[in-house]
Design a protein around this nucleic acid. Structure first.
Length: 915
DNA sequence: ACCGCCGGGTGCC
DNA sequence: ACCGCCGGGTGCC
């Protein structure tokens, strides 16, 4: 890695110092920045009083929470002390509370408490308080506490010798810290940690399961299904809990409680893309889809024969005896004795029942079925069987933009009547009663989030199961979407995600909070116990994080093996590049544009102003790329570089540039948040950022704000966004007489050849330019191809329709899909197509890969052929070269620093024009 | 709480 | 004694 490799010596020393610090000062003041950039200001022994008034108890070494109580009628400075379950233990002594209240209320520091001894005291007990906050507030906090007579112990007890040593090391430490940035340090530490995080998740989990999906499950999917079932049903303790005597003890926080800790009924299915997470989940839904009706015959008989529960209701077979909301709410079946073992067995019955619908693996099935039925016989005579029927059958699925409904239709047996409702579109049925009567409700994160604003029916329903497809969507806990998701009420919760951690450990919190993994669903405990230690590179912290993830996550990659065999064997994929030669006229036009652009960019490079004129550079490249595809793609306004006459003109020009930058796909990342740009705005110096990100930069730099990329002055009022009427007026392309281009002809030649070979072949035709797709429609129509089109501008409903049409195997179904490169989420399933034509190279090779994966994935029966059209002797050829370099870069870099990006971008531009 | 603090009872040695 | 001292009641914030 670039940033780390340059300073081996410093790193060595750095780690030595870090180690030194940790050993020497232990829990005492280390200056390590924590997750939020907080540092430990110091510690202080305090007193918790009033123990006898409260029921909350703590164990030796237990962490406690400190909560301000400004409304306390006796003292508005009151600070409450509570254990992890939020049970009050006592209060902080009055005078100390007064000092702390000032610090806490002004957010100068966060205070954390640990009780090391005196936990058996009757009236009060000592508590070790740690003050954490931003470096710049340290002095204020220390002084303010000192003023009230409380001295923060900042260094622990040191002898003179170690004091000097640590002083020296502190100096060096800050020196090193200046050189290698925080990111560099973290990337070094975390890279390995992340690599290991999911290690050990691949081991084969116990057993496999059959299911009543029409599509036979693959071995690894059966394993996943079995794992999911056991996660929902087995009564194993959550991670870090132990039974000690008659108490349940949390080994990390040292908290203990008499009641069984609430289990996580669900988890994270983090299999790689294309391993069939969705199919497995559908199978899971079907395993306990009974609702009285669709039970297979044999089972129905058994059901009729068996006794009902005394209370006259069938209850969910999967509800565990403890702390189940259903039970505690309605007291339905408290009388029925059942334990962990029988729950599992009963749940096996489901599978036995469901098996009769399935067709695969006859020998295996038979054996297993017999075994299960032996158990059925054993259990038939007991009162337990009523548990087979779930009371709740609602299941909510959330997803980004995926054709999930098709997958239900495709995979679910025709004899299983499953009510699936798509909850989106303006006409959606918002009746709670109606939604509750569905078996499955599918919606999108956006709809959920929009509903959340004003009494959402989805939030009023108690779901049996909530599944988050592409669950990493909620990784930002501050997003409305995430908040909306966290508020959903459900018994069982699942997250499907190929990439549960994208940037940092932080990404995990919302996921754990969604799963209600106590106590880490409360931010403070997550930060204290997991995130901060892990970010600091603390071994135990990382170990804990790994254990935690391991317990609730199943992850396999495409290269994983079960019993020595690869998990999936996808049909072969062939990628070939087809060179396209421009005809003479096209070549002349291209050369003209290229020479012009080359001299312009050459000037920028010589002046060192490439970044300042970034938009122009991109515009030039864009024009060249458009030349390669079709002459009519070129924007009608040739943006001359002269000064804008009026503000309106300047604005129009900026909008145009922003469009170009966005369309070019080269700058999808905002340099501030390093994430893909949301709410894109362009500065007057023509650099693109997320509006919130750049607004923050401007507001923090009060009046002197400079563009993070080129250091030009920027103002909030000068940010320009693309007006809503985004789409180009189609008339301009239609008005002119349609003409062909070399690339169009290359494509048509291929399509016609394929059609003559095999009429059933379906193709994806992919371009970054939606206008190019429009141009392609004309020759497709002329040759009588039946095609559909999918681009980003289409509504959710329309997309679903288009995908369904295209995936259909009916004889008159469309054989070609015109697909805009960026349209559709990662989960999009277009397996009906076996040929992919990439009309123009993308800057980001991953985008192309993703696009290919939409059809080269599970369910693909044919060999996949990918054809990339590249114009010979053009900017496109150079782009391919840069792509390769980029891929290497991405693989090596981990959170690559901004500076690297800048230089590599300039290098890219130079390479493109062979400068 | 085997403390501190409060306030009433009390008052030479 | 407008004090000190004693001993009982009492006790988080």
């Amino acid at each position: 890695m670039h940033c780390c490799g340059d300073f081996p010596f410093f790193f060595f020393f750095f780690f030595f110092l870090l180690y030194f610090y940790q050993v020497l000062t232990m829990a005492a003041a280390s200056e390590e920045p924590d997750a939020d950039g907080s540092v430990l200001f110091g510690q202080l022994q305090g007193t918790v009083v009033g123990l006898r008034y409260y029921t909350g108890v703590v164990n030796q070494g237990e962490m406690v929470g400190l909560v301000r109580e400004p409304q306390n009628p006796y003292d508005r400075n009151a600070v409450m002390v509570a254990n992890i379950y939020g049970n009050q233990v006592g209060h902080i002594k009055r005078e100390l509370a007064a000092a702390m209240a000032y610090v806490m209320d002004n957010k100068l520091a966060k205070v954390e408490g640990v009780v090391h001894y005196g936990t058996k005291n009757k009236f009060n007990m000592p508590v070790m308080l740690s003050f954490w906050g931003k470096e710049e507030n340290k002095n204020t906090v220390v002084e303010s506490m000192l003023r009230r007579g409380y001295k923060l112990n900042t260094g622990g007890i040191k002898s003179a010798g170690t004091y000097i040593l640590s002083l020296v090391s502190a100096l060096l430490y800050s020196y090193v810290l200046d050189i290698v940035t925080k990111e560099a340090f973290l990337c070094f530490q975390l890279k390995n940690a992340f690599d290991n995080l999911f290690e050990g998740l691949m081991e084969s989990k116990d057993g496999e399961k059959e299911a009543s999906v029409a599509t036979p499950l693959l071995l690894h999917q059966k394993q996943a299904l079995s794992w999911m079932c056991s996660r929902e049903n087995k009564c194993t303790l959550p991670p870090f809990w132990e039974k000690r005597g008659d108490l349940y003890y949390n080994t990390l926080t040292h908290f203990s409680a008499r009641e069984v800790p609430e289990r996580v009924r669900g988890g994270i299915l983090a299999d790689d893309m294309g391993l069939g997470k969705t199919l497995t989940t559908i199978a899971l839904i079907l395993t306990n889809f009974h609702n009285g009706k669709p039970l297979p015959v044999e089972m129905s008989v058994s059901v009729n024969n068996m006794k009902q529960c005394k209370c006259g209701e069938y209850t969910n077979q999967n509800t565990s005896s403890q702390n189940n909301e259903q039970n505690s709410n309605s007291n339905l079946c408290n009388l029925c004795p059942y334990d962990a073992e029988s729950t599992v067995l009963l749940e096996d019955l489901d599978f036995a029942a469901a098996l009769s619908g399935s067709t695969s693996d006859a020998g295996f099935k038979k054996k297993k079925t017999n075994k299960i039925w032996a158990r059925v016989d054993k259990y038939l005579k007991t009162d337990l069987l009523h548990l087979l029927i779930p009371c709740l059958n609602d299941c909510l699925l959330l997803l980004s933009s995926v054709n999930l409904q098709d997958q239900f239709e495709q995979h679910v047996h025709a004899n299983v009547k499953l009510n699936v409702y798509l909850y989106y579109g303006s006409e959606r049925n918002r009746s709670k009663k109606f939604l509750s009567s569905q078996d499955v409700v599918i919606t999108t994160y956006n709809v959920l989030s929009a509903d959340f604003e004003n009494k959402s029916p989805l939030h009023g329903i108690h779901w049996l199961r909530v599944v988050l497809d592409e669950g990493h969507t909620i990784r930002n806990p501050n997003a409305q979407m995430s908040k909306a998701v966290l508020q959903l009420k459900a018994q069982r919760r699942w997250i499907l995600s190929g990439t549960p951690i994208q940037n940092s450990v932080k990404d995990l919190w919302t996921l754990l909070a969604f799963l209600r993994l106590k106590p880490f669903d409360v931010r403070e405990w997550w930060n204290r116990v997991i995130q901060r230690p892990a970010m600091q590179g603390d071994r135990a912290g990382l170990q804990n994080l790994q254990t935690l993830v391991k317990c609730i996550t199943l992850r396999r990659t495409k290269t994983s093996e079960v019993n020595g065999r690869p998990l999936v064997s996808l049909p072969e994929k062939m990628v070939c590049v087809e060179q396209v030669e421009l005809n003479q006229q096209e070549r002349e036009e291209y050369e003209l544009a290229r020479n012009e652009g080359r001299s312009t960019i050459g000037r920028y490079v010589a002046e060192g102003t490439v970044l300042r004129n970034y938009a122009d550079v991109l515009a030039i490249l864009m024009r060249l790329r458009q030349h390669c595809c079709h002459p009519d793609l070129l924007a009608k306004i040739s943006s001359d570089l002269g000064a804008a006459a009026t503000p309106a003109e300047l604005r129009e020009r900026l909008v145009e540039k922003l469009r170009l930058v966005l369309a070019s796909g080269s700058d999808e990342e905002c340099s501030v948040c390093l994430d893909s740009v949301c709410l894109p705005v362009i500065t007057h110096c023509a650099h693109v950022y997320c509006r919130p990100c750049i607004a923050k930069v401007i507001s923090t730099q009060q009046g002197t704000a400079r563009c993070p990329l080129c250091r030009s002055d920027i103002k909030e009022t000068e940010l320009v966004e693309v007006p809503l009427e985004e789409m180009e007026d189609e008339s301009s392309t239609h008005a002119k007489k349609w003409r062909t281009s070399s690339k169009v002809q290359a494509l048509m030649g291929n399509l016609l050849r394929l059609q003559s070979e095999d009429r059933s072949i379906k193709c994806l035709v992919v371009s970054q330019f939606t206008r190019f797709l429009s141009i392609l429609e004309t020759p497709l129509r002329e040759h009588g191809f039946s095609f559909v089109r999918l681009d980003g501008t289409m509504s959710q409903k329309k997309r679903a329709q288009v995908i369904q049409d295209f995936q259909s195997s009916a004889a008159n179904s469309p054989s070609i899909m015109l697909l805009s490169l960026k349209a559709g989420g990662v989960g999009l399933n277009l397996t009906a197509a076996s040929h992919v034509f990439l009309m123009d190279p993308a800057w980001n090779p991953a985008t192309e890969e993703q696009c290919i994966d939409r059809c080269h994935r599970l369910g693909q029966k044919r060999k996949v052929v990918v054809t990339k059209f590249i114009v010979k002797d053009s900017v496109e050829e150079n782009m391919v070269r840069i792509q390769r370099k980029k891929q290497d870069l991405v693989e090596k870099a981990f959170g690559s620093a901004n500076t690297d990006k800048k230089t590599s971008r300039i290098d890219d531009i130079k390479a493109l024009l062979e400068l």
